[in-house]
Design a protein around this nucleic acid. Structure first.
Lengths: 144, 144
DNA sequence: GTGATTGCAAATCTTTTGCACTAAA
DNA sequence: TTTAGTGCAAAAGATTTGCAATCAC
């Protein structure tokens, strides 16, 4: 984990350094938004809005850059469920997702009980990278 | 199926009419490209290129419109595997996909042997729409 | 200081849209 | 004719890039 409540910056800064990322004001702030608290699924747009709302001055371009740097550094995972916008997931463990079509929201499928049976061999010459299961659902949790 | 080799237009035209789509030159041509022959996965860009190469004059905007109309009519299915471009699949049966990351190519997983075990209940108030399994692979079939 | 990082605005890419023109019924 | 469909070019939305200004070391 990057940081927890009581040691505000120290852990975040260390985690960034460990990944070879210079701990700038922007990276620290975004890192804390992303990694303090539970697992999150964010878009660049949403994280930028959240940062702005929280008084963090950071440009959208930097949010994009930072999300990709974090992804390259192995701090985030990219999830594709919806053409037209990219989601970043702070949960790096092997897991799958519900995708709420109506509100374009991504949710971790709890537990790792999912198992895909009957997978054929990957095509010749190809190497398995990852199996993604996306359970598309509609209608909100607060019913509608 | 929309059309097969020997009755060039008749079946395509009929299929379009059945779906309430006026059988225009463009729709017929795109329909034949899509549905004559086996299952296909196309992007708007790629289908437009293919049409142009084949001497069919059709604008990219019309290709987009047509793909969506075909999808709404239940002749195509949309598949999301890659932000930044939309794939349309002519295979309407219940099936899943290999996604070749390196060449951004989609491939049907043959057979319907895949089964997802251990799916949790969908969140309260939500309704299951579809379970998508995407097997991401890299390295081409012709190895490399 | 020096090089990495940021911000801005412009560029890019995919997709959609408005509207005059064309074609199907 | 009458209405749906098409093409073009412009608009829109997400993301990226170039470059001067700024910050971490």
């Amino acid at each position: 984990m990057l940081a927890s409540g009581d040691r505000p910056y120290a852990q975040t800064i260390q985690a960034l350094r460990d990944k070879g990322l210079r701990p700038t004001r922007q990276r620290i702030a975004l890192g804390r938004l992303l990694f303090d608290g539970g697992n999150r699924h964010v878009t660049a747009e949403a994280l930028h809005a959240e940062a702005s709302k929280g008084g963090v001055k950071v440009s959208l371009a930097t949010v994009y850059n930072t999300l990709h740097q974090f992804t390259d550094a192995g701090l985030l995972r990219q999830v594709v469920v919806d053409g037209g916008c990219t989601y970043f997931d702070t949960n790096l463990s092997d897991h799958h997702h519900f995708y709420h079509v109506d509100d374009a929201r991504l949710e971790d499928i709890p537990g790792d009980g999912i198992e895909v049976q009957g997978l054929p061999q990957v095509p010749e010459g190809a190497t398995l990278e990852r199996v993604e299961v996306i359970v598309r659902v509609h209608g909100d949790r607060k019913a509608g």
